[in-house]
Amino acid sequence: MSKKARADKEICVACGVCVRACPRSAISVFKGCYATVDDESCVGCRLCEKSCPAGAVRVEVQANEK
């Protein structure tokens, strides 16, 4: 189990603040619609979570994903 960031597509306003905050370039705004996380790069540091003005991104324990 590991901690990864997840953005809520419904809440995300695609402002890109999290992208600027991420030290690993793990999070990006998908086609101007919402933020998506690359699990390979994400280290679960929560910097994105702390910067998101809409509280749309959360770092959560990912229970044994596929």
């Binding site: 402002c15 101007g32 619609c33 910067s51 003005p53 809409a54």
Partner: peptide
Amino acid sequence: LYRPRTWCTFCPMGTMTQGICRIKN
């Protein structure tokens, strides 16, 4: 009052551009 970029959550330009992107994609 809130977070530095709270304006961006309801900025009309932001809402409009996200809306356009959502329709386009």
